[in-house]
Design a protein around this nucleic acid. Structure first.
Lengths: 201, 201
DNA sequence: AATAAATATTAAACTAGTTTAACATCATTT
DNA sequence: AAATGATGTTAAACTAGTTTAATATTTATT
């Protein structure tokens, strides 16, 4: 059997982690030995709604969308993940309950994968990681709360302007109809908002 | 100086924690020595928007609302906390950044308080607590995500029915205009929804 | 019991955002 | 270069939810 060994680009993860915790060389080695490196093609799924999310991926390169399909079959995007973000249903991964969300690549994407099966070993061999993941989830919670606040108190136009300001580079790589879905509006209405904004200047 | 010592009702917290971790008697004693017990009157604030949230409270009895005031001065409720819930801006407490939210008592409320100043001591004396708080925050994240999904994919009427089914007892103790605020609609429209629902049966 | 304060209802006029449908543009494959 | 599929625009008719304003009901206070 043929096994493809990808060259693992671990540096972005280590740099990212260094904002939270400091690992010794030996701890880094343990970490590297317990994560996977995976390449996905555009269109492939990392997580599927209803499955328990066994893997949590750190995006080394590429872009994913995290979305939900409602009873009418309508797709609602809740997050985009680019470099240095997490591609996962964190809620499902950490609680090991069925995922609310799909995570799908909208570009070819390279991920460093944490598997739930090995994460308990990682916690016991590198206790600091428990703190790391706690902080990641905390940040995720704070971001999720802020998202709720925005959707409560801002009009669609204001939310779009906020998105554009906060993630100026994402707009170039993500099709507009997906941004509309992220904002919770139709693509037609986003189109209208954009033409309004152009007239306003 | 007069110091009021309240009788601390710690049992509900210990029972709640037992779903996540098992504490020894000694660990329980440490815990009790490092938390505070506080009684608030209806109307009092536990957390104020803009302040760093130094305290996270476990509700022993009573009820609080967590809300946000937008630029137009409009109040948006994001959560109610009753017995066995947390009254806190968790996002602010764990990241020690300015709170997005106010937490105010809508009934007289008794809380067991974790202070951020002592929580690091608690983590080092009872490492299990780190796991406990990680799991709480994880559950909070999962709930917050589900809330976003609902507000994306359900109509106001569906959201109200969901709320009523999920928290049947809350409706009795919380005024309707606050429930409207929680659902992100006006009190007038909730009134309309309710009369529609009555006609439908 | 009377008054005041807080909470809830109703209805009409309005607005933000949806739906439908037709057309336009851009990118990819042959 | 033509053809196909994916993405983006425009406009008219529509609907869910808001605003305003007047009134009703419940709860708390004297």
């Amino acid at each position: 059997m043929n096994r493809i060994i990808y060259k693992m680009n671990i540096a972005p993860l280590l740099k990212y982690m260094s904002h939270y915790i400091t690992l010794t060389q030996e701890e880094e080695n343990i970490l590297v030995s317990k994560v996977l490196y995976k390449k996905y093609l555009k269109g492939q799924y990392i997580v599927q709604q209803g499955d328990v999310c066994k893997y949590s991926g750190f995006v080394v390169s590429g872009c994913t969308k995290t979305f939900y399909v409602d009873e009418e079959g309508q797709e609602h995007i809740v997050m985009f993940s680019v470099e240095d973000w997490w591609a996962s249903d964190m809620g499902s991964f950490v609680t090991q309950t069925p995922a609310d969300f799909n995570v799908q690549c909208i570009e070819n994407t390279e991920l460093i994968i944490f598997s739930h099966d090995t994460i308990e070993e990682l916690y016991s061999e590198i206790p600091k990681l428990e703190r790391f993941f706690r902080q990641i989830v905390e940040k995720g919670l704070a971001a999720s709360q802020k998202r709720i606040v925005r959707s409560f108190s801002l009009s669609a136009k204001e939310q779009y302007v906020h998105f554009r300001n906060q993630y100026p580079k994402m707009e170039q790589r993500i099709p507009q109809y997906m941004i509309a879905s992220y904002l919770g509006i139709t693509k037609e209405f986003l189109s209208k908002i954009k033409s309004q904004l152009i007239l306003e200047q």
